[in-house]
Design a protein around this nucleic acid. Structure first.
Length: 486
DNA sequence: CTGGGGAAGGGGCCC
DNA sequence: CGGGCCCCTTCCCCA
C-alpha cells in the first residue's frame, strides 16, 4: 500500500461469527437481553428479535426489517410475546437451536413438524434441508395442485381449525399489535406440497402474509368478464383461482335481490377458498383461521377477533341493553335477541317442520328439530322411485321426479308456486352437497335467502343441481352422469 | 326435546 | 379501499 493510497484493509476474524452466535445463544439461555418471547402450547422461549429477524423471513417482515418494507407494517418494538401454537414446541425449540447454533438437531420423527415450522416462519434453508431428507420437492409454487374445486368446497364446510395463533401482546396490548406479520414469499420458495396435513401448513404459510400482502397472494375474483385481466391472471395464477367457479359470480351479485352491491372486488381466502365480499373483510376473515384476537376487554380480559364483538361484549359490563321490548320491560343486548323476543309476543312461529308440522319461532330451532329426530327417519323411508306398483308416484314423488335435475332457482319457483314448502321433498343443493341444513332452508326456510345462499354461497357452481339424498344409492349412476355434465 | 341466550362469522352500508 | 357499525344466520350451551 502506497502512502498516498487510503485502501481498505480487511482483516478476517473467522471465529467471530461463531463466537457471536455462541454468546447470543448464551444470552438466550440465561434470558439476558431477550426482548421477544415465543410461546407454543404453553412452552416459552425467550429470544432476541434481531436474531429471529435475521433468521426468519416471517419475523423479518413482522418487525419491518425486510428491505423495502414499510416500517409501520411490522409490529416494531411494541410486541414482546409471540404465540406460535402453529409450531409444535419441539419444532420451535429445534428451530431456535438452529438459529443460535447453525445446527439443526432433531429426531427424524419430528422432521415433518420442523419442516412445517420452518415453512411457516420462513426459514428457508431448514425447510430445504428437511424436504431433502423427507424426499419432497418444494418447487413449483404457483402451480400447486389444489384439490378439485368441488373437493375444496366440501372441505371448506368443516369449521376451520386454528393451528396458527400468532397472538401478539405488547405492554399496552393495542389491537395494532394483533396485526399479522407481513410475509412476502418473493425469493422464497413456497412450502412443499403437500400431503394431507401439510396442506394446511402450506396454506397457512401463505396465510401468515400480512393483510397488505395478501393482495399479492390472494387472488382477487374478477367481477365481470370484461374486467381487465389482472397481472396475476396473466402471470399464471390460474391454478388457484377459478373465477367461473366463484361462489359470488353467478348468484351473488346478480341473482338476487335487486339490492345494490358495491363494486368491491371479492377476495378468495387461501385457506378455506371461501370468497369474502366487502372491502377490508378479508383480514377479518383471516383471523378466524389464525385465532388471532387483537381486541381485549379492558374489564375482564376476554379477547375477541373483532372490535364490534368487543363493543357488544362491553355492554355486559356497562349494563347497557340498548334494545328494549316495546311490550314488556325486557331489554336486550342484541337486536336479534329483541327480534326473537318479539316473536314470542306475537306468537309468530313462521318456521314449520314440513313433516310433523310443528312450528318454531326460530329457524335454527327448526333446523335442530329436523336434524335431531324422527323427521329425518321419515325422510329416509320415502318410497323408492319407480317402485310404486300403481305406477303413479305419490304426491311427494311428484316433486322429486320433477325436481331431480332442476336448478335451485327453478326449484324455488316451483316451491313458491306451491305457496309454501313442498312437504317431504328433501332438496339438496348440489349433487354432493353435504348440508342437510341447506336443504331445510330450501324446503322450509325463506326461499329467497336459501337460494341466495345455495346459488351464490355454498354451491360451487352457479346453479346447482338438485338431487335426492335418500335415493343416492340408486341414483349413483345418474349422479355420476350429472357430475360429468357439470 | 324445546326455549332462550350468547358467540362467531359473513355481508351490506356508510364514512 | 379500509374500517366501523349494524344486521343476519348458524351454532353451541344451558335450563
Amino acid at each position: 500500500m502506497s502512502p498516498g493510497e487510503d485502501g481498505l484493509i480487511g482483516i478476517p476474524f473467522p471465529e467471530h461469527s461463531n463466537e457471536l452466535l455462541s454468546r447470543l445463544n448464551a444470552q438466550r439461555r440465561t434470558g439476558l437481553l431477550c426482548d421477544l418471547t415465543l410461546t407454543s402450547h404453553g412452552a416459552r422461549y425467550p429470544t432476541h428479535r434481531s436474531v429471529m429477524a435475521a433468521v426468519s423471513l416471517y419475523f423479518r417482515r413482522l418487525f419491518g426489517a425486510e428491505e423495502g418494507e414499510d416500517g409501520d407494517e411490522g409490529v416494531g418494538d411494541s410486541c414482546s410475546v409471540c404465540q406460535l401454537d402453529c409450531v409444535s414446541p419441539d419444532a420451535l425449540a429445534a428451530l431456535l437451536e438452529f438459529a443460535y447454533t447453525a445446527t439443526l438437531t432433531i429426531r427424524s420423527s419430528g422432521m415433518r413438524e420442523v419442516l412445517k415450522g420452518a415453512q411457516l416462519l420462513g426459514i428457508q434453508c431448514v425447510a430445504d434441508a428437511c424436504r431433502d431428507i423427507l424426499g419432497e420437492t418444494g418447487d413449483n409454487p404457483t402451480n400447486q395442485q389444489l384439490p378439485s374445486r368441488r373437493k375444496q368446497d366440501r372441505c371448506s364446510v368443516t369449521r376451520a381449525v386454528s393451528p396458527v395463533r400468532p397472538v401478539w401482546r405488547s405492554p399496552d396490548d393495542t389491537p395494532e399489535c394483533g396485526l399479522l406479520p407481513a410475509q412476502g414469499r418473493e425469493g422464497h420458495p413456497p412450502p412443499a406440497e403437500v400431503q394431507d396435513g401439510d396442506t394446511r401448513a402450506s396454506h397457512l404459510g401463505r396465510l401468515m402474509n400480512g393483510s397488505s400482502h395478501w393482495s399479492q397472494e390472494f387472488t382477487p375474483i374478477p367481477h365481470r368478464p370484461e374486467d381487465t385481466p389482472s397481472e396475476e391472471e396473466e402471470s399464471g395464477a390460474q391454478g388457484r383461482a377459478t373465477p367461473h367457479h366463484s361462489q359470488s359470480q353467478g348468484g351473488g351479485a346478480s341473482a338476487g335481490s335487486g339490492r345494490k352491491r358495491k363494486s368491491q372486488t371479492p377476495q378468495q381466502c387461501p385457506v378455506c377458498q371461501k370468497i369474502i365480499h366487502g372491502a377490508g373483510k378479508l383480514p377479518r376473515h383471516m383471523r378466524t383461521h389464525t385465532g388471532e384476537k387483537p381486541f381485549q376487554c379492558s374489564a375482564c380480559g376476554v379477547r375477541f377477533t373483532r372490535n364490534d364483538k368487543l363493543k357488544i361484549h362491553m355492554r355486559k359490563h356497562t349494563g347497557e341493553r340498548p334494545y328494549p321490548c316495546p311490550s314488556c320491560p325486557a331489554r336486550f343486548l342484541h337486536s336479534y335477541d329483541l327480534k326473537n323476543h318479539l316473536s314470542l309476543h306475537s306468537g309468530d312461529r313462521p318456521f314449520e317442520c314440513p313433516l310433523c308440522h310443528k312450528d318454531f319461532a326460530r329457524e335454527d330451532h327448526l333446523q335442530r328439530h329436523r336434524k335431531g329426530h324422527s323427521c329425518l327417519e321419515l325422510r329416509t323411508r320415502r318410497p323408492r322411485r319407480g317402485t310404486d306398483p300403481s305406477g303413479s308416484p305419490p304426491s311427494e314423488s311428484f316433486g322429486q321426479q320433477h325436481l331431480d335435475h332442476m336448478s335451485v332457482a327453478a326449484a324455488a319457483q316451483l316451491l313458491e308456486g306451491h305457496g309454501g314448502p313442498m312437504q317431504g321433498v328433501p332438496l339438496l343443493t348440489g349433487a354432493r352437497m353435504p348440508y342437510p341444513e341447506l336443504l331445510w332452508r330450501v324446503v322450509a326456510g325463506p326461499v329467497g335467502k336459501a337460494l341466495d345462499k345455495a346459488e351464490g354461497g355454498s354451491s360451487p357452481h352457479g346453479s346447482a343441481s338438485v338431487t335426492h339424498r335418500t335415493w343416492e344409492e340408486e341414483d349413483e349412476e345418474q349422479d355420476a352422469a350429472g357430475e360429468e355434465e357439470e
